[in-house]
Structures are given as C-alpha cells and as structure tokens.
Simulated assay, not measured.
Amino acid sequence: MKKIIVPIDFSEHSEYALETAASIAKKFNSEVYVLHMLQLSNAIITASANSLNEEAVFYLKLAEQKMETFLDRPYLKNVNVIPVVKHFMVFKEINELVKAQDADLIVMGSHGASGAKEVFIGSNAEKVVRHAEIPVLIVKHNPILVEFDTIIFASDFSQDSVESYIKAKSIFNKLEAKVQLVYVNTPNSGFKSSVEIDQLISKFLKIAEGNLDMFKDVAVVSDYSVEQGILSYANRAGADLIAVATHGRKGLAHFFEGSISEDVTNHSTLPVMTFKI
C-alpha cells in the first residue's frame, strides 16, 4: 500500500481520518495525499476571466493556509504528506486523483446520515463509497488506538465477490489482523437453507482460497436485514473494523435498491472498509 488519499473539509471528522491514515502509512511506508475541494460557486465559475482569476486565487490561498494549519499535527511526523487542492466538489475527481497517483486506499471521516437526509442527500462518505474504484476506509470517531486486530468481512459469497475478498485479504494480512467471514441469512427473497449456505460458502472458498480450511471461520447469522445482521455480529464479535463488498450502485438503481455497504457505513460506529465488486 504505497499511496493513501484522505479527502478533508477541515472538520473534526477529517482529522480522525487523517490520524488513521497516518497510522496506516507508518506501517506500510505509504505516501498520504490530503485532498481538499474548494466548492467554488457557479457565480465564480461563470465570472469574467479577470474576476475569476482574482477570486479563485484568493480562495486557493485561503485553502492553502488552512491546509498548512490543519497538517501541523504531531502524528504526521515522519509521514510523507502531499497536500492537494481541487477547484470543484465533484466526487469523480477523487477517482481521477486515484488513477493519476495509482493510489491504493481512500480514508475519510464521516458522521453518517439518517432519515430524509440519508434518502435524498446522503453523506459525502456514502458518495465516495459509491464512486470509488479502490477500497475506502470510513472513520467515525477519534482513533484512540488504530489497531485493527479483529476484522469481520461480510459477503454474499457470490463468485462476483471473490476478487474483492482477495484484495481485502491482502490488506488484512499486512495489518496482521484476525479475519472472521460473515454471511447473513434473511427471511426475505434472499433466504437460503443451511445446505444451500454450506454449498455457497464451500464453492466460494474453493475459488478464493483453493481449499476449505477457512470454512470453520465463517459465521452464519440470521437477521431481519443484512445490515442489522452485520452490525449485530460485529458487536458480539468485538470487531475493530467491518469490511464489506459493494457493487457501487448509482442513479435509479441505487435509489430503489439501496446499498448494504452504504447503510452499514452510515449506521456503524466502527470503522468500515468497502471493496468494489
């Protein structure tokens, strides 16, 4: 893991993400790209060339000053930090930076979203999860101890999720974490019998691992929703991190079908890491 991107808005939750990223960077000897997007208004964007230049420079200088103050943290000592300021608040720009720098991980803070705001707006973290092509680590609280000793990886154990699991396992091995695989069985259209679940998990492990050695490490949980099952099991297992695979649904498909990864991201008090299927 050579490069980590941390989108910030200079908030308290941004600092949580930055401290977490710094801890990971020290373990992997990674570079940390701290990204701030200015969110310039349409008025500034459509102004004449001269006024646009003057106002844009003003806001750019202001952002650079805030960035310098924000990055003055003792936990960043001996961490290679590269500040980046973009002009527009477009989430695909994060992907552009990811591709340009060949980044491996996005770390960001979030306070979540709920109710009508969650349905019609969503949190910024939710939008990043939806667009990101690389793993995203969402942090909700001050990382007193940034040690992910116990991680649960929730999966539907489909063949589509094999690649995301392999990527996740590579990261978890480097973190020297204990990983518990979790399947949530629900009473709706996704319900499966015990035999069907065993067959599903066995087929998945044969492809992903080449053997069934980890079969004993798969927990099968029954709950009214996948999200509830994941959060409840994480609490019982004393997990430090929840990892989930996501299809990254967008547009109408996202609105009507929703996203388990985004629901977990919004409602979990634990850090959540998502992996694109």
Score class of each variant (00 low, 15 high):
I151K: 09
I151Q: 10
I152P: 00
I152E: 09
I152G: 07
I152H: 06
F153S: 10
F153Q: 14
A154F: 01
A154I: 11
D156M: 08
F157C: 09
F157Q: 11
Q159L: 14
D160V: 12
S161I: 00
V162S: 08
E163I: 01
E163V: 09
S164V: 13
S164D: 00
Y165L: 06
I166M: 05
I166S: 04
K167H: 03
K167E: 02
A168K: 04
A168L: 07
K169F: 01
K169M: 08
K169E: 10
F172Y: 09
N173R: 09
K174S: 03
K174A: 04
L175T: 06
L175S: 06
E176I: 00
A177H: 02
A177L: 09
A177G: 10
V179C: 01
V179E: 06
L181G: 02
V182R: 01
V182W: 03
V182Q: 01
V184W: 02
V184R: 03
N185Y: 07
N185K: 12
P187S: 13
N188T: 13
S189V: 15
G190M: 13
G190E: 13
K192S: 14
K192D: 05
S193D: 13
S193Y: 13
S193E: 12
S194Q: 14
V195K: 14
I197N: 11
I197S: 12
D198L: 14
L200P: 06
I201Q: 05
I201V: 15
I201R: 06
S202K: 14
S202V: 02
L205K: 06
L205H: 07
I207M: 11
I207Q: 12
A208P: 01
A208E: 12
E209M: 10
G210W: 03
N211M: 04
N211H: 12
N211Y: 02
N211P: 08
L212Y: 05
L212H: 07
L212R: 08
D213N: 11
M214E: 13
M214A: 14
F215P: 00
F215Q: 14
F215K: 14
K216R: 11
D217H: 10
V218E: 04
V218K: 07
S222A: 08
D223N: 13
V226S: 12
L231K: 05
S232A: 15
Y233A: 08
Y233P: 04
N235I: 07
G238L: 02
G238C: 06
G238N: 01
A239M: 09
D240R: 00
D240M: 02
L241W: 04
L241N: 06
V244E: 01
A245Y: 00
A245R: 01
H247I: 04
H247W: 09
G248W: 07
K250G: 12
K250I: 04
G251Q: 13
G251N: 09
A253R: 15
H254D: 11
H254L: 10
H254I: 03
F256R: 12
F256G: 02
E257M: 15
E257H: 14
G258M: 02
S259R: 11
I260Q: 01
I260P: 00
I260Y: 01
I260W: 03
S261P: 03
D263Y: 03
